[in-house]
């Protein structure tokens, strides 16, 4: 039954190999994946590839321009900031924080939202009413303002940022998973599982969840992009990590302050955020095409 359940469309079961091949044939998946891999490698090997200490200040070397400008300082490819810190090294370590927040926050939001969405969609009745009402109230808040309030309440720091993102964006997962669960519930395989006498939690966990999984992968990828933006926003308003720590958002905020003297401070962190977000969006959209059985036909 598990095999039959894996193919809601009803066609032949696909092997792992063919799914992978379809992904590699999708331009958006490959391109988005490549950029993501680039940032992931930079993050993992940051201590090896960063030319300088990202927090080391050198007040004799303030505002050194990047290599393409006149008066560039040798050894500082992208120049230095207002405290003489190496921008390239800060960007590399910034990738570490951006990706760490993206993965953990998206996972936390996904877990919470999926659990509630599955329950609401499958159980229906008052459980559905309570959860749906909660989602509605939650979405009446401006997300940015709510995240800022949450972090202000919990105190600054990475864990607050992650909890804030999860506490706000679980609704995205919840709504989609709820709708999908309701649709899956109408399928024959669920009816037969009920007939065979399988328990409700067993059906939800072992039969329905695997069928919702492709959708979850897509949502997770897109949520990572959102988390990168929210982290940048929170560090921009100085609510993420302490300001000497290299996050892209802090670098953008510093750049905004000195934009008239040194516009290059802002350019590269903004480009990094945009590149990573575009890559995650492309990857998510591409995966949607590859994994969604309805879209595929």
């Amino acid at each position: 039954m598990a095999e039959a359940a894996a193919v809601p469309g009803g066609s032949l079961p696909h092997g792992q190999g063919s799914a992978l091949r379809r992904m590699l044939a999708n331009r958006r998946v490959v391109l988005g994946g490549a950029v993501l891999l680039f940032f992931a490698l930079a993050a993992v090997f940051a201590p090896l590839i960063a030319p300088h200490d990202p927090v080391e200040q050198d007040l004799l070397l303030q505002y050194a321009p990047p290599v393409w400008a006149d008066r560039a300082e040798p050894g500082y490819l992208f120049g230095t900031d207002n405290l003489g810190r190496d921008i390239l090294s800060r960007l590399i370590y910034g990738a570490q924080i951006a990706l760490f927040v993206a993965v953990t926050a998206a996972a936390a939001a996904g877990l919470l939202g999926t659990a509630l969405g599955l329950l609401a969609g499958y159980l229906g009745g008052w459980v559905d009413t309570v959860i749906s009402r909660l989602v509605e109230i939650w979405m009446a808040f401006p997300a940015v303002l709510l995240s800022i309030v949450l972090v202000a309440v919990m105190g600054t720091g990475l864990h607050s940022v992650i909890i804030a993102i999860a506490a706000i964006d679980w609704t995205r997962f919840c709504r989609v998973v709820r709708a999908e669960t309701m649709a899956q519930k109408q399928q024959d395989y669920v009816a037969s599982a009920v007939t065979v006498g399988l328990g409700r939690m067993h059906i939800l966990w072992r039969e329905i969840l695997p069928n919702v999984l492709p959708l979850l992968i897509v949502l997770f990828t897109l949520e990572m992009g959102i988390a990168v933006i929210v982290e940048a926003i929170l560090s921009y308003v100085n609510l993420s990590l302490a300001s000497d720590f290299p996050t892209w958002g802090t670098m953008i905020a510093d750049g905004r302050k000195y934009v008239n003297q040194a516009p290059w401070l802002m350019i590269l962190p903004i480009l990094c955020v945009i590149a990573l977000v575009l890559a995650l969006n492309a990857l998510g959209d591409g995966l949607k095409d590859v994994l969604d059985p309805v879209m595929r036909k």
Binding site: I233, Y236, R256, V259, M266, I267, V273, I274, V277, L278
Partner: peptide, 18 residues
């Protein structure tokens, strides 16, 4: 659509300065 309003705002500022 892929770039949020927050980043557009900063890009505009960069554009004006540069």
């Amino acid at each position: 659509l892929a770039i949020p309003d927050f980043l557009w705002a900063l890009l505009f500022i960069l554009f004006v300065v540069v």
